[in-house]
């Protein structure tokens, strides 16, 4: 098991905010729109540095998505910012028609995704957004795992022509990926090589998988951990190469089981390499108020749940 040093503990949304500021300096076509959550999205620095390229839309997310679509017509690269719930479910039809179907180069940047939003409760804890976004034709769906990766992804998606959904979160989590990484859309990242089982993880669950891998190694179980930061397009060859080696698979995500990363992996395996698979995901349930840690434990997406899923799938191998 490869070991990683925790460089610091930071929120992925700050990776977005810092990335956006850097991007603003690099690319004059980048504009940012926010629906009254500038502080929460860490977009203040961009707003301060480039006030003429920052658009405060008020609490009107549908209008924000339409505005962004329209700005692409003038050659701009709009980054929209609000919570994941209001970035997807609330504006699904606007994204579908004005952005995705119209092929607009809009970057939909979504913070506070999943249970780890915490105390605000289930109204805000969207666990269906990956499913909704990945179903849209030609939509790229990215869910980075830590601050450094979120920052790198924020920069990288500007170079990609087409709509992107970038998902990140609220809590401070271990920042362990390289600060100088080059983010490659659609390219899975092998966190640690192993031989007995593969854990495909995304977002906050990548670090949970690392923690699980360390504990499993103490029992002599060799876990391969793959960070699927790009859920769509999925790196099918990386999935097949790892699964073909370990012959059993666990998927881990802060999302509903229905429609999430696990379903994408299962689809590849069912078509090309049928193998046992176990899911670590929220199982057809809304969340509730609580601390992020309490919620991850209660809803079955914590380190212990990854370990339990590995044990289950090894028995089916």
């Amino acid at each position: 098991m490869k070991t990683y040093e925790i460089q610091n503990v930071k929120d992925t949304r700050s990776g977005f905010g810092d990335g956006l500021l850097e991007l603003g300096k690099q690319n004059p076509d980048v504009v940012a729109l926010c629906a009254d959550l500038t502080g929460s999205l860490k977009m203040n620095a961009f707003e301060d540095a480039f006030p003429e390229r920052f658009f405060q839309t008020g609490i009107a997310e549908a209008n924000m998505i339409g505005l962004a679509a329209g700005m692409t017509i003038g050659g701009k690269i709009p980054y929209t910012g609000t919570f994941a719930n209001f970035s997807t479910g609330r504006v699904y039809d606007q994204i579908r028609q004005s952005v995705a179907y119209s092929g607009k180069n809009v970057k939909i940047c979504a913070s506070h995704a999943g249970l780890t939003l915490g105390e605000d409760g289930a109204t805000h804890q969207i666990l269906e957004d990956i499913g909704m976004m990945k179903m849209l034709p030609h939509m790229t769906v990215i869910n980075p795992c830590d601050y450094n990766q979120t920052k790198a992804a924020t920069l990288a998606i500007a170079e990609h022509e087409g709509p992107v959904y970038l998902r990140f979160g609220r809590p401070k989590v271990p920042n362990f990926t390289p600060a100088d990484q080059k983010f490659e859309i659609g390219k899975a990242w092998t966190v640690s090589e192993g031989t007995d089982v593969t854990v495909f993880a995304t977002g906050h669950l990548v670090w949970k998988a690392v923690e699980a891998g360390v504990k499993l190694a103490e029992e002599g179980i060799s876990t391969e951990i793959i960070n699927i930061h790009t859920i769509k397009p999925l790196d099918e060859e990386a999935v097949l190469a790892s699964a073909g080696k370990t012959k059993c698979v666990v998927t881990a995500e802060e999302h509903q089981r229905n429609g999430g990363l696990g379903d994408s992996i299962a689809q590849v395996l069912a078509r090309r390499l049928p193998l046992p698979i176990e899911y670590v995901a929220v199982n057809d349930s809304f969340g509730e108020s609580g601390t992020p840690e309490e919620l991850m434990t209660k809803y079955g997406i914590d380190t212990a749940d990854v370990i339990a899923a590995v044990r289950r799938v090894l028995k089916r191998k």
């Binding site: 505005l67 962004a68 329209g70 017509i73 003038g74 701009k76 028609q97 004005s98």
Partner: peptide, 27 residues
Amino acid sequence: VRVASGSLGQGLSVALGAAQAKKLNGD
């Protein structure tokens, strides 16, 4: 045609975005 329409209510937002882009571009 520069954007799809049909699902109603979306076109004014898109038009306003294009209008703001024109201002940014000095057009």
